[in-house]
């Protein structure tokens, strides 16, 4: 089944129409999305860097991850909310935009990876995971999130 009818329904929705018809709404939501991106970068990188033995090395990985997780989830909620609003303003255009689909695949992978593999490794006893594995886990996380960011920027250029 094609998703196109659903995309068209989103486009016709009151929220989508309101954002599309406003000169200011899209840029403002987009700016909030970008501010969320900066915080997202911080909370993802500070933990992934720590996993690779860089940055705040005095703090145990598991303790840092526990402390940062609420920030990660909070930022993710802001990103998903603003992202969804941006999407509803032009779904059918996005349906034919390759960069949008690339971003969505990276996003789904990044979220699943973050809350399964990465979360498990972050909570694990540090002595039980070798430095090489920890570096690999961190690099995959950074790659997946970078894919989301690049895909997002590319939507505008596509």
């Amino acid at each position: 089944m094609s998703l196109l009818p659903f995309f068209q329904w989103c486009e016709a929705s009151a929220v989508g129409t309101a954002i599309r018809n406003s000169q200011w709404l899209f840029p403002v939501i987009e700016a909030v999305h970008l501010l969320g991106l900066a915080l997202m970068g911080g909370v993802v990188l500070v933990v992934d860097m720590r996993l690779m033995g860089l940055g705040v090395r005095r703090k145990p990985v598991a303790a840092l991850a526990r402390e940062i997780e609420p920030w990660l989830i909070g930022t993710l909620i802001v990103m998903l909310t603003t992202g969804l609003l941006l999407y509803t303003s032009e779904p059918t255009k996005l349906y034919y935009n390759g960069a949008f689909w690339m971003k969505m695949w990276f996003l789904a992978s990044a979220i699943i990876y973050t809350f399964t593999v990465r979360r498990t490794v972050l909570a694990a006893d540090e002595t039980r995971v070798s430095p090489a594995w920890k570096t690999l886990v961190a690099l995959i996380s950074i790659t997946l999130w970078a894919g989301v960011g690049i895909g997002g920027r590319a939507i505008g250029f596509y």
Partner: peptide, 11 residues
């Protein structure tokens, strides 16, 4: 945009 994540994230 990617460097923004590193710079402003850390800042």
């Amino acid at each position: 945009v990617l460097a923004l994540c590193l710079f402003l994230g850390m800042a």
